[in-house]
Each structure stands twice: as structure tokens, then as C-alpha cells.
Design a binder for these strands. Structure first.
Length: 559
RNA sequence: CGGGGUGUGGCGCAGCCCGGUAGCGCACCUGCUUUGGGAGCAGGGGGCCGCCGGUUCAAAUCCGGCCACCCCGACCA
């Protein structure tokens, strides 16, 4: 591709609307433009990145026996009514056709898969199957954010497995895990595989593939000792117990002290020796008092799970500040690590707290894991300290079970001639998130540094002066040579000053830059640099360029 | 949905408090000079000041309503 006439609108300054590093750089490098909140146009360079990622995904999906299909974005309501997801998903875009029939813009494709399977799969001899697509999804996200990381319209690679029994599902699941590891490795990402929440829809187990980066919106607890890794939604950790000084049970006045910080300062008590009491109201379960240690944060997902998937809301009633579990006449849930300690907590009397309170003795709570894991807590598997990192979810794998096959009648006849529901799994990857995560993980102060495998071009050729016919001829020769050798090449043939071209080359981040400039006339050489190692430079004669590029280490790893 | 912020040529911003008919840098066009890390000089084009309404002789500026976008939180099959 030649830059002079191409749509590669690079920006000198950071756009005002962008906060995340990947968002800024993807806008500045001219990869994408935003049409509306969470809705993006992909420009030529951005599209090429997506295509490179898609190609890797296709290779690995095909390698485990995946068959690519394409399902409609526009879907009839009735399959969603059958599966029970027509109601209650605020992210779903709904519309009507001209005859008033209810339609859906697909946010995922389990229903269509189950519909298809119900028609085409009859016997255990037809199983297993892996069907996948790389298709647009539409979700009315509550809050699109961070550029391309969370959008309302996005492309997803989604695959679905159909199996006759749980053992076969395990094999399909494991095949996906392997394929996913290879995909993310080949895309040059650092990532973790973590156990994840199966969500409110049940399911038999799930893992997430998470790429650490500053713009990540999830957090993961990881153990360097044993490799334990789990989303903080479910991650468990063992906090170091504080030393409990002897304390007899007594009421103390705490006028005007309401928060943990205020009471702890007033009574000169470590926050770790206090109980944080939070009143929650469950839609089905009604009010519950929830206790975590003073320095801990409640994880509401854990609470909701403990209440059987109920929807919970924090109740900010008037007496907050002196609330406590002793004598409370609502059910009490306490974090499991509070058992046996001696704490300070609200006395249920305005302006007073209680010292010397022991959960399990002075009141009888249900002990469950409720607190959000913090860095430094001990790993539940091996006892080593846990680290907590921000991550972006780039993929997930999910053992679905028979929810959709039951609902849509996707059955098969087993060896004994008995009708059984097909057992499904579903598996997603967000290619745009791979691209953004790669930008986040690899960029430097000058711009993007693409992993070679997903770089829009392998080689960026800069002609320093268009007035020098020898330079132009040499650059054209390198350009043609790269293409003949199967290297994607971008030729900067713009009539711009050298500084502009160098800055743009850094910003765009192709793995290799070939500069054709004064050195050609003086020494008969062109310069070859790796973007990630700007100080190392190869100066080679024109006829050595292709071989030199091919020998670079950047391309070894990814081929 | 709650909290905070921002809307002024293509981009980044000033002007708004204190009302008088819009300015700076970059980009763009023309000419000359320049050509290895975002050039210089000269000339030039381009703005419903987010939208609607109100106050006023007069509104980018004051008041009311609405919309859009960004950030934090809730939410995230």
C-alpha cells in the first residue's frame, strides 16, 4: 500500500475524547473513527489488523475441527422467547419489522445454533460438532468505554460445540482451551487463563482469557506460586489475621463517628479489628445484614451468589453508622474469615459501638466468602501471596449444558435409540480487544509497536526525499521485492518532510522500517530498523534488504 | 440509572465570570525558500459558537429546557 493516496489520517495530538492508551493510539494512528458512543468505523489500517487476527483465529479453529458458518444478526423474536431470554436482558436491541413482528439484533447466537441443531442433528453419529463464525454482535451496553474495548457493535468469533454427553463436552472444551491459548500466543499477547463466574444463567463451568493492561476493566487474582488465577468475582484469598488484643464486651460512645475510618480514629482501633456492617435488600430474600472486615470491600457478585442469584441493592437507611449484627432481627451473612475474631462494631444504637464482639458467639451469622480479594492475601491453594492485576477479557469458554437444546428442541437419538438433548458449549473471542490489548501491552512513548503476527504491514518503507530519483527507484525496488517475497509492505511516498514520515512510522508501529535516504548516495546502503529496538540498525546494500528482513528475529517468533 | 466533566472552523484550545457580533496553534490552498526526527516567510479559504426557547437595543457570553460525548460507579448473555 502506498501512503500518498491512502486513508490513513494520523493525528499529531491526542484526541480530547480518548483516555485509554489504546484508544488514543488507535485514533492517532488512523485505525478507527468513532461514529457514536461505542460505534466505530474501521479505516484501512485498522481493518488490516482485524483481518490478520481473524486469519489466526480461523487457522486455529479449523485445526480443532471447527466449521465456519455465518448466522444472521437480525433474528426473529420467537427463538428468544423460547429460550427465555426475550425478557430481562436490557442490553438487547429489539425492533419490529413493517408488519409489527418482533425482531432482535443478535447479541449472541446460542438460540440460532440450537435452532439449526434441532433441524440438522438427528443421531449420535452426527456428533460431536464445532460450528463457529466471525460475526457482528449488537449490545446496548449501559456504558460503552475505552475506545474499542467495550462497544455496542463489535465483531466476535463465537463458536458452539454440540456433544452427546459430558465426557465429550469436556473434550470439546479442552480443544477450545488449547486453540485459544495458541491464538493469543500467536497474537503476541500476555494473558492469563482464569476460572470465572458462570453468571446467573447457570452452566457447568467457565474460564476467561484475560490480557493484563492498564485499561482493563476486570481484576484478576493470580498466584505466582501455583498458578492459581481467578477473576475477583470469584477469587478467594486468605487475609492475614490481625492480632486480637483482649477485649471484654462493652458499649462505647462514638458520637458523630459513622464510617470505619472515623470510628477507628476515635477509638484508636485498627480497621482490621472492626466489622463493616452493610444492609442489603434482596428482591426475593428481603433485607440482610452483611459483614466484612473493616479494611475489606464486599464483592456484590459474591453476595448475590450467596443469596441464590438474587438481585441485591444496598440499603442506605438513616441509622447507617451505628448498625451492627448483635441483636439484629434480620438474617446476617458474614465473611468466612471473621469467624472467631474479636471485633468492634455498631451497637444498633445511634452514637454507640460495641467492643469485644465475636461472630459465631455473640450472634449466629451464615459464614460465606464475601470480601474482595486484595493483593497480598494468601493463595487458597498454596499459601503464597496473591497479586491482583487489571485485565481485559479477550476470550471466554463456557460449558453451557442443555439449556438451549432443551428450549429449542435440539435432540438426538443415542446408541440405545433414546432421545437426548444435545449438550452445548459456547466460546467467544473479541478480535478488537486483542488488537487494543496488543496496543496497550506493547506501545512505547512514540506510538504503537505491533506484534509482527498482527501488524497491518510487516515493513514500512520511508523515502526520505522524493526529489532524489535514485531514492525513489531504490524504494520502489524494495517495495516490489517485499511483495514478491510475501512481506506486506507500506510505502511512504508522500511529499512530506522526513521528520513527519519518521514520526508517523513510529506511531503506526510496523515491526520493520526501511529508510531510503542519503546513505544510499553516500554509501550505497539503506537502513533497516526494528520498531521495538530503535537503536539497532542494519545498513545493507539494496540487494540484501529482503534477506536481512527475513532474518530478523521479530519474524522468527511469529512464523 | 446515580455522580462529575465537556460541547466554539478538520484536530487541539482560548474567549464566557464582567453581553457589543469570534480568536490562537496545527492542518488545508497559493507562491518563494527549505529537505534525516512533526520547516520558514508572505498571502488566502473555511465557523448554524451542540439544539430549542427566554431575557436584552444587542447573547458564544446571562436564564430555562433538551441533546450529544467523555470519566467514575451501577450494569456487563
Amino acid at each position: 500500500m502506498r501512503l500518498a493516496k491512502s486513508l490513513v489520517p494520523t493525528l499529531r495530538e491526542d484526541p480530547a475524547d480518548a483516555e485509554a492508551l489504546s484508544h488514543k493510539l488507535m485514533l492517532r494512528a488512523g485505525l478507527v473513527r468513532q461514529l457514536a458512543a461505542g460505534i466505530y468505523v474501521y479505516l484501512p489500517i485498522g481493518l488490516r489488523v482485524m483481518e490478520k487476527i481473524d486469519a489466526i483465529i480461523r487457522e486455529e479453529m479449523n485445526a480443532i475441527g471447527g466449521q465456519e458458518i455465518s448466522m444472521p444478526v437480525l433474528q426473529p423474536a420467537d427463538i428468544w422467547q423460547k429460550s427465555g431470554r426475550w425478557e430481562g436482558i436490557p442490553e438487547m436491541f429489539k425492533l419490529q419489522d413493517r408488519y409489527g413482528r418482533d425482531m432482535v439484533l443478535g447479541m449472541t447466537h446460542e438460540e440460532v445454533i440450537a435452532w439449526l441443531a434441532a433441524r440438522e442433528i438427528r443421531s449420535y453419529r452426527d456428533l460431536p460438532q464445532i460450528w463457529y463464525q466471525i460475526q457482528t454482535k449488537e449490545r446496548d451496553e449501559a456504558r460503552p468505554r475505552s475506545g474499542v474495548l467495550r462497544t455496542r457493535e463489535f465483531v466476535m468469533k463465537d463458536s458452539y460445540t454440540l456433544d452427546p454427553d459430558l465426557a465429550a463436552l469436556e473434550r470439546s472444551y479442552a480443544a477450545h482451551e488449547g486453540a485459544y491459548r495458541r491464538i493469543f500466543e500467536r497474537c503476541g499477547l500476555r494473558f492469563y487463563v482464569a476460572q470465572s463466574d458462570t453468571g446467573m444463567m447457570g452452566g457447568l463451568g467457565a474460564h476467561e482469557f484475560l490480557a493484563p493492561c492498564a485499561a482493563g476493566e476486570d481484576e484478576i487474582a493470580i498466584c505466582a506460586g501455583c498458578g492459581y488465577a481467578a477473576n475477583v468475582e470469584i477469587a478467594r484469598g486468605v487475609p492475614a489475621p490481625p492480632g486480637f488484643p483482649p477485649a471484654s464486651r462493652e458499649e462505647v460512645a462514638t458520637p458523630n463517628a459513622r464510617t470505619i475510618a472515623e470510628v477507628s480514629a476515635l477509638l484508636k482501633v485498627d480497621p482490621r479489628l472492626m466489622l463493616k456492617s452493610l444492609l442489603y435488600v434482596g428482591r426475593r430474600t428481603g433485607p440482610v445484614l452483611v459483614l466484612v472486615r473493616g479494611d475489606h470491600a464486599l464483592h456484590e457478585r459474591k453476595l448475590a451468589r450467596a443469596l441464590g442469584g438474587d438481585e441485591v441493592r444496598q440499603h442506605l437507611g438513616a441509622p447507617a453508622g451505628s448498625v451492627g449484627p448483635v441483636g439484629a432481627h434480620v438474617p446476617v451473612l458474614a465473611d468466612e474469615h471473621l469467624r472467631g475474631g474479636v471485633y468492634v462494631t455498631g451497637a444498633n444504637r445511634e452514637g454507640f459501638h460495641l467492643r469485644g464482639v465475636t461472630p459465631g458467639r455473640d450472634f449466629e451469622p451464615r459464614f460465606v466468602d464475601l470480601h474482595t480479594v486484595a493483593a497480598g492475601e494468601a493463595c487458597v491453594e498454596c499459601g503464597k501471596p496473591l497479586a491482583v492485576e487489571k485485565v481485559i477479557e479477550v476470550g471466554n469458554i463456557f460449558k453451557l449444558g442443555t439449556k438451549y437444546s432443551d428450549a429449542l428442541g435440539a435432540m438426538f437419538l443415542d446408541e440405545g435409540g433414546k432421545e437426548q438433548p444435545i449438550i452445548m458449549g459456547s466460546y467467544g473471542i473479541g478480535p478488537a480487544r486483542i488488537a487494543a490489548a496488543a496496543v496497550e501491552q506493547c506501545a512505547d512513548a512514540d506510538g504503537i509497536v505491533w506484534p509482527a503476527s498482527i501488524a497491518p504491514f510487516h515493513v514500512h518503507i520511508v523515502v526520505v526525499s522524493l526529489r532524489d530519483a535514485a531514492q525513489v527507484a531504490a524504494a520502489e525496488e524494495v517495495y516490489a521485492g517485499c511483495r514478491a517475497a510475501g512481506l506486506d509492505a507500506l510505502l511512504d511516498d508522500r511529499d512530506e518532510r522526513p521528520g513527519v514520515k519518521f514520526k508517523d512510522a513510529d506511531l503506526l508501529g510496523m515491526p520493520v522500517r526501511v529508510t531510503v535516504g542519503n546513505a544510499l548516495a553516500k554509501e550505497g546502503v539503506v537502513e533497516i530498523k526494528e520498531r521495538r529496538a530503535p537503536r539497532a540498525e542494519h545498513r545493507v546494500a539494496r540487494d540484501r534488504v529482503i534477506d536481512t528482513i527475513r532474518g530478523l528475529e521479530v519474524f522468527r517468533a511469529s512464523r
